[in-house]
């Protein structure tokens, strides 16, 4: 059964991919991209990668789609027909693809339990996690502890994106009174959004603190948290959303998350351990690990939520055609 779902989903992905290349309406393409991402997230569920599925859906189908929509709204909606057709791209792609197919011929088969990836390094993570880290979710233990340094890099990457968007687009404050033109038509939506808003934030906290036991963690929580505010901004207007969480605060929060993460690492050094060694944080190693993981996941969540909001505000506070008066360039 799993195989069937796997095969069908891959087929659907392929069809969607071809449609994305062919279609010229960027709006339609954006929605297909969202569907593409949703399908791949489904595939991740089938392939046992529940954490990844959660993230891909929230990032790919959620945030990326919204960013794409905002960009299409600020630029053109229809892609022009290329003025010249060249065979070179097709040639490059065919060669690259052929090389990859050639490379698959000696690969271990899909799902083979004796493949090298399942024999070296990884089995020890599964075996040692219960006693060394003491959390059931092995993905969390590897992410936050064994390869915690990669995750620090990941937070830095998203922080970089935040700074970049801040520098490129800036976040200009909107007046509260500046409401969407059809504000009065949105009563139902506003009521629902207001009801949902606290629930979404609560759910984000659940995902954050439940990440040790089930799919989830700081990153996913941050995205969900930000999504709640995006919903609020969509229904109540940007000015109101910026009053709830001022853009100036967002920059500080984004930096604070990275600092919290690195502070945990440096604390490990100060206590005589290595950078990011959690064992020394508490009297017994396992509770040290728990504490360390909790703190860094919180740091990740703060930065991710703040940066996604910076990015969102940055995009939606631009006016079509670049009529942003404050911008000198």
């Amino acid at each position: 059964m799993q195989h069937l779902v796997d095969i069908v989903l891959l087929g659907l992905l392929m069809i969607t991919g071809f449609a994305i290349v062919r279609m010229r309406s960027l709006l339609a393409v954006t929605m297909l991209t969202s569907i593409y991402s949703l399908f791949s997230a489904l595939l991740f569920v089938v392939l046992d990668a529940v954490d990844v599925a959660l993230t891909e859906a929230a990032i790919g189908a959620g945030i990326s789609t919204i960013l794409l929509l905002a960009t299409v709204a600020l630029t053109t909606e229809y892609e022009k027909v290329p003025s010249h057709r060249s065979l070179l791209p097709l040639l490059v792609v065919t060669l690259t693809g052929a090389a990859l197919i050639y490379g698959t011929l000696d690969m271990p088969h899909y799902g083979d339990p004796n493949a090298p990836v399942h024999r070296h390094v990884a089995p020890d993570y599964i075996e040692d996690t219960p006693e060394e880290i003491g959390v059931p979710n092995v993905v969390t233990s590897v992410l936050a502890s064994y390869r915690g340094y990669d995750t620090l890099g990941e937070v830095t990457v998203i922080f970089t994106a935040g700074v970049g968007v801040l520098a490129l687009l800036g976040v200009h404050l909107r007046k509260r009174t500046e409401q969407p033109s059809d504000y009065h038509k949105l009563v139902v939506l506003r009521v629902i959004a207001k009801l949902f808003f606290p629930l979404i934030l609560l759910f984000a906290l659940y995902v954050l603190f439940h990440g040790d036991y089930g799919p989830g963690g700081g990153f996913q929580a941050g995205v969900i948290f930000a999504t709640g505010f995006v919903l609020y901004a969509l229904t109540h207007g940007l000015g109101n959303a910026e009053r709830v969480i001022p853009p100036a605060l967002l920059g500080i929060l984004a930096a604070a998350g990275v600092l919290l993460y690195s502070a945990v690492g440096i604390e490990g050094m100060l206590l005589g351990g290595k950078f990011l060694e959690y064992n020394v944080l508490a009297d017994d190693p396992v509770s040290g690990q728990h504490l360390g993981i909790l703190l860094i996941e919180t740091g990740v969540g703060i930065t991710v939520a703040a940066v996604i909001l910076i990015i969102y505000f940055g995009f939606v506070s631009r006016r079509p055609g670049g009529a942003d008066a404050q911008d000198p360039s």
Binding site: L47, D48, A49, D51, V52, T55, E56, I59, G60, I63, S64, L67, V117, H118, V121, A122, Y125, I126, V138, V139, V142, L143, R147, D150, T151, G153, E154, V157, I158, T160, A161, G164, V165, L168, F219, V304, I311
Partner: peptide, 22 residues
């Protein structure tokens, strides 16, 4: 299933978002 690629891809998804946003 092997958790390590999952971890790598979680990181890569974030990198992807950063690239898309920029």
């Amino acid at each position: 299933s092997n958790p390590l690629p999952h971890v790598l891809i979680l990181t890569a998804i974030v990198v992807g978002l950063a690239t898309t946003a920029l």
